[in-house]
Write a protein that binds this DNA or RNA. Structure first.
Lengths: 164, 164
DNA sequence: GAATTTACGTCAGCCTTGTTGACTTTCCAA
DNA sequence: TTGGAAAGTCAACAAGGCTGACGTAAATTC
């Protein structure tokens, strides 16, 4: 058995194993986004709209600043996406009561319908993958992903985990 | 304990669990690409160049058609990337001996140096994540990712796994 | 041997989604 | 009351996807 110094049998840390993990991430992410992409093509929306819809649904009433922090894009970029979603009546923007500078974002009925369609598709794939791999694998999956995040993103992720 | 029909305790298949998985994928993929992105910014290259370099390194002598199938982009898109890499002397293109229509692609010395820099960074993150999560988690991670791929992509992935 | 198909390259133009920079409006808080 | 934060907007640009059309060389098929 190929061992590294320390003799713990860290076969899973060889460059070859790491490379497989890298390629698995690459190919899997394609599958991960494939279904929503398919639904959105033809509509005037893209992946950026999906992300905005997802996180507004996830945290109703969230502010633009919040969303910027989560999505990690510039406000100009987010604004373009948000503006079309508001114009098309998928997202509602509400001036803050406590702090009137802030805009609180909500999905409208119409927005909720699209969100449902997108997340149903994405969850279906995730469910199939989970079912195929089993509960123990799922736990490992989540552990590795969490460890792979930047600390700042991990914070965001955990905040969402609790908050929901 | 919340059970679904069948009584196997499929707690990991609840919508809430699936949503967490979806968000974990989103945030983790950001981390996954962050280091190479940082290295490439400033150079005239981007993520698309990284992908081309990765898979040419992975399968030296691969053809353009092969690369197109793996990357899932149009030849025009790939060509733009490949052309700059060839011009800059990172990739060498060689007319096929058996079939002279084909172009076989290789990394040059210079290409190998950049590839090393990029993959070192990406592997370092992957290694840290693997180490933090442990071997069992890594196995689960790979199982779920593989199950998440489109069948066509899974074929490509497995072909690479063996071939290497 | 001629016709067709395949592999590759290229030009032109378009779209989405990211970026910077500059600027305004609104409004809270010191 | 004034400084600064939050939000929005305009303009310009770049990366990297896409389609469509076309050209060339080589292989394959008829």
């Amino acid at each position: 058995m190929a061992e590294t110094a320390g003799g713990e049998g860290l076969l899973f840390l060889t460059d070859e194993q790491l490379r497989k993990g890298i390629e698995a991430m690459f190919f899997a992410y394609r599958g991960f986004t494939a279904d929503p992409d398919r639904i959105l093509e033809g509509m005037d929306y893209g992946r950026a709209h999906h992300r905005a819809i997802h996180f507004v649904h996830r945290s109703p009433g969230t502010t633009v600043s919040n969303l910027l922090a989560i999505l990690g894009v510039t406000k100009q970029s987010l604004n373009r996406v948000l503006r079309t979603l508001i114009e098309d009546g998928l997202v509602r923007s509400e001036k803050g009561r406590v702090d009137a500078r802030e805009r609180h974002l909500f999905l409208t009925e119409k927005g909720l319908i699209l969100e449902r369609e997108l997340s149903d598709a994405q969850r279906a794939r995730m469910r199939a993958a989970y079912r195929a791999a089993g509960p123990a694998a799922v736990q490992g999956f989540r552990q590795v992903l969490e460890a792979m995040m930047d600390p700042e993103m991990r914070k965001q992720y955990n905040r969402l985990k609790e908050g929901g």
